[in-house]
Design a binder for these strands. Structure first.
Length: 271
DNA sequence: ATGGGCACCTGGCTGC
DNA sequence: TGCAGCCAGGTGCCCA
C-alpha cells in the first residue's frame, strides 16, 4: 500500500508522539508477519527510549538508545497512535506502549509488513544496504538516472520502481510521474533521451512532494498515525482511471499489466 | 548483470 | 445467497 509519501506522512505523525518517550511494554498478538517476530522481540524493545523517527525508502526507522526498530508497512500496514485501552481490532498485531500513556498500534491485514529490531547501524542491514538514492535528495538527479538507464531494456516504469535505482516510487506514483513527464510506461529505459530523463526526474520529485503535502494517497485502507486518510487521490491523473477521460485531453485512459502490476497511461499525452 | 515470474497473505468486489 | 475468481499501495528470492 504505502509508497514514500504515505510512509513519510506516517513518520511525521509518529515523531512527536514517540521522540523522547520510553517504550514501557510491547504486546504482540500475531508474530507471523513477513518475517516471524523472534522470541526475544518484546524484551529487547522494552525499556528503550526513542531518540528519533527517521525514514529510509519505505522503511520507518525508530531509533532508540539501545537499537533501531525497522518497520515496513508492506501493502496493507499502518501505524497509529492510540489509547491502549481501546479494544484491539482484527489485524492489530503489535502494540508499543509508551510512558506517555499512549501506544503505537501496528495493523496489517495481509501481513506483508515487518518489524525488525537491530542493535547496530540500521542502514547496514541487508534490507537497507543495497537501496538506491532517495528521490528527494540531490543525489537523484538527471545525470544519475540517465547513467542508470543506459543499456537497460526494461520498461521505464519497471526501472523507476526498482529500489536499487531509486527508492520510494511504487505503483501509483510511477504511473503518475510518467504521465506528468509525458512518457509512455512501456518505453525501454535505455532509449530515453537526456531531455526525457530530465523531465522524468522532475516529475518524480514533484509528484512525491505534492503527495506528501496532502498526506499521501488513500485508495482503500491507508491511514496516517492519527487514523486519517490522505487526499492525493483527487489529484491522480491516471492511476485507477482506466476508461475515464484524460484530465488534460479527454482521451480514455488505458490500462495494461506490466511486470505483474497494473499500469495506467494516456495514449495521447504520453509518447 | 539483467530480466521475468512466483511467493507471501487477507479482504473486497464481480459475475455466474 | 453462495462461491469461485480476480484484484489490490511491496519486495525477496529463485530461475534462465
Amino acid at each position: 500500500m504505502p509508497e514514500l509519501p504515505e510512509v513519510e506522512t506516517t513518520r511525521r505523525g509518529l515523531a512527536p508522539a514517540l521522540e523522547g518517550r520510553v517504550l514501557t511494554r510491547v504486546v504482540v498478538r500475531e508474530r507471523r508477519l513477513r518475517w516471524r517476530l523472534p522470541a526475544g522481540f518484546e524484551a529487547a524493545l522494552a525499556g528503550c527510549r526513542v531518540r528519533e523517527v527517521r525514514r529510509r525508502a519505505k522503511y520507518l526507522l525508530i531509533a532508540t538508545d539501545r537499537g533501531t526498530l525497522i518497520v515496513h508497512l508492506g501493502m496493507s500496514g499502518s501505524l497509529r497512535i492510540v489509547d491502549p485501552a481501546l479494544a484491539p481490532q482484527p489485524h492489530d498485531h503489535v502494540d508499543l506502549l509508551l510512558d506517555s500513556g499512549r501506544a503505537v498500534r501496528f495493523n496489517d491485514p495481509r501481513r506483508f509488513g515487518c518489524l525488525i529490531f537491530v542493535a547496530g547501524d540500521p542502514l547496514a542491514h541487508p534490507l537497507l544496504r543495497t537501496l538506491g538514492p532517495e528521490p528527494l535528495s540531490s543525489e537523484f538527479d538527471a545525470d544519475y538516472l540517465y547513467r542508470r538507464t543506459r543499456r537497460r531494456r526494461v520498461a521505464i516504469k519497471q526501472l523507476v520502481m526498482n529500489a536499487a535505482i531509486v527508492v520510494g516510487v511504487g505503483n501509483i506514483y510511477a504511473s503518475e510521474a510518467l504521465f506528468r513527464a509525458g512518457l509512455r510506461p512501456q518505453r525501454a529505459a535505455g532509449r530515453l533521451t537526456r531531455a526525457e530523463v530530465v523531465r522524468l526526474v522532475a516529475a518524480i520529485r514533484r509528484v512525491l512532494g505534492a503527495a506528501i503535502k496532502v498526506g499521501g494517497t488513500t485508495l482503500r485502507d491507508y491511514v496516517n498515525a492519527d487514523g486519517l486518510p490522505g487526499y492525493f487521490r483527487q489529484k491522480l491523473f491516471v492511476y485507477e482511471r482506466a476508461g475515464e477521460p484524460c484530465r488534460v485531453c479527454q482521451t480514455p485512459i488505458r490500462q495494461r499489466v506490466q511486470g505483474q502490476r497494473s499500469t495506467y497511461w494516456c495514449p495521447t499525452c504520453q509518447r
